[in-house]
């Protein structure tokens, strides 16, 4: 199946057909999610309206990890099977993942001020997410640092895989260390501990972010393929 979609032309055709649906699904989820998040969900008895930051913060943090994992899988496929489309997918994902990570850090900071009385604390969760942000930046910098694009692609793919050790550390940092950041209350073995009325908008927002990612990544992959094709034409021009 991998090879079926590996063909860039087939991929372009398919992705052009899927994109409008993703866009529509994203808009619906955003609309419903924001309505529930801002109006219809209950106010937290301790946190008041501040709790609504959660509906951006938590999905953004999930996406930060999801994007990195997607990148690591793509990088592994690109390294092992020399799969050109996987490499393009990793490249296309990086800035999106970096943006989600940044969003998670900023909203976390905004939430931290009223809750903990400070914009930033150096606990394990925050630090490891900050490292994740640096890993995204490092990936993009390394990828851009070579005159020959292929070398940059392979070197940065190795870097992504090395940096993957950070992902489980982030996930479990709140369980392993006694941190200020609260432990996971949704994705846990014994079921979620937060109120169902809060769960609905949270999942809607998470779905919206997810659709947003897939929509954007397909656009970016298509753009990247076009850039590659232009470059190939230039090379042909040079050697003609």
């Amino acid at each position: 199946m991998l090879h079926y979609f590996a063909n860039p032309t087939r991929f372009q055709r398919l992705s052009r057909r899927v994109e409008p649906w993703l866009l529509a699904a994203m808009l619906v989820c955003f609309g419903a999610g924001l309505y529930f998040a801002l109006f219809s969900s209950p106010v937290d008895y301790q946190q008041g309206h501040t709790v609504r930051i959660m509906y951006i913060h938590v999905p953004a943090a999930w996406m930060a990890l999801f994007c990195y994992t997607a990148m690591a899988v793509s990088a592994a496929v690109a390294l092992i099977w020399k799969h050109a489309l996987a490499d393009v997918a990793a490249k296309a994902t990086a800035p999106i993942g970096a943006a989600f990570t940044f969003l998670a850090l900023v909203t976390g900071s905004l939430w931290g001020k009223p809750m903990w009385g400070t914009w930033w604390v150096w606990d394990a969760r925050l630090t490891s997410v900050l490292v994740l942000f640096f890993l995204y930046l490092g990936y993009m910098a390394l990828r851009d640092a070579f005159d020959e694009p292929g070398r940059g692609a392979r070197a940065s793919a190795i870097l992504v895989l090395v940096g993957f050790v950070n992902v489980p550390i982030i996930k479990f940092s709140v369980d392993w260390w006694n941190t200020l950041h609260q432990p996971s209350s949704v994705l846990r073995m014994d079921g979620p501990t937060i109120h169902p009325d809060m769960l609905t908008p949270l999942f809607l927002m998470a779905a919206a972010f997810q659709f947003y990612y897939f929509w954007l990544v397909l656009l970016r992959i298509r753009r990247e393929l076009m850039v590659n094709r232009t470059r190939a034409l230039r090379h042909r021009q040079a050697s003609a």
Binding site: T127, V131, G138, L142, A145, F146, A155, I158, V162
Partner: peptide, 25 residues
């Protein structure tokens, strides 16, 4: 690892620190 990855890169030394230092935290 960083030194090997940045071989032949532009501004390899700075880039190397950028890649490796976060992992050393």
């Amino acid at each position: 690892v960083g030194a090997a990855l940045t071989l032949g890169a532009r501004r390899g030394g700075v880039l190397l620190s950028l890649l490796v230092l976060p992992l050393l935290i």
